[in-house]
Nucleic acid binder design. Structure first.
Lengths: 116, 116
DNA sequence: TAGACATATAGATAAATGTCTATCTGTTAG
DNA sequence: CTAACAGATAGACATTTATCTATATGTCTA
């Protein structure tokens, strides 16, 4: 699979505060000052987190007057879900097509629990 | 949503080498030495990564003779996918039920792109 | 039982990261 | 034009983390 875009997304999401920001934005666009009211940290820290989220391709920013409006990118939502399914599914594109464990009696492949 | 188990999973996945290990295990059980052949880093480094993956609830280990057999936890696969969908869906459980951006002309909620 | 093999642990180190304070830029209102 | 406000940038600092080497533990085999 293509880790090139998935890993930066995971890195950006792997912070509880940024995950909460994504959760907030999952309902719609918010400006920085509105996001900030949900946290204890400082304004520069929020600015840093928003930059990380933008660079990971998770969020877009649009300046409207004094305010920065942040929006969850629909491409991120679809790409992240698709990459996750591809990673966790035991499918044909799997990296380990060359064989299972050399020391396992049970060579049966993993049962796929993903419902598509 | 419940970040308590989701964040550690994301943290553990947000390393390209560990993500590749998950990808390898998505097809079935592998022992440590087999996993190691896919990487350039040292054996203690692999041991460290496997510990991280276990502590995040992603992988289980079973000692069989000299070998450690590592398996992707089915509970992880289902929980991670479910948490991801819940995070990215604009649903009723959303954290931001209390309203949208105070400075947006467009107060329309985000269009949900997730197909369930 | 001794040695080879698989893996884990200990400890060190360099790099990345989340946070802060101070300050700067840009925009609006009076 | 000036002051207030929203947000970004710079730089410092403490913590976390990915990696290494060296060594310990556990298991099998000859």
């Amino acid at each position: 699979m293509d880790y090139q875009s998935y890993v930066p997304m995971l890195k950006a999401m792997a912070d509880p505060n940024r995950l909460k920001i994504i959760d907030l934005l999952s309902c719609g666009t918010l400006c920085a000052c509105d996001i900030l009211t949900h946290f204890e940290f400082s304004q520069p820290t929020l600015s840093h987190h928003m930059k990380v989220l933008q660079q990971a391709g998770i969020v877009t920013a649009q300046k409207v007057g004094k305010w920065q409006h942040y929006t969850l990118k629909p491409e991120f939502v679809t790409a992240f879900l698709q990459d996750t399914k591809q990673l966790l599914a035991n499918d044909a594109d799997c990296i380990c097509h060359d064989g299972g464990c050399s020391n396992c009696q049970d060579q049966a492949p993993r049962k796929d629990v993903i419902t598509k």
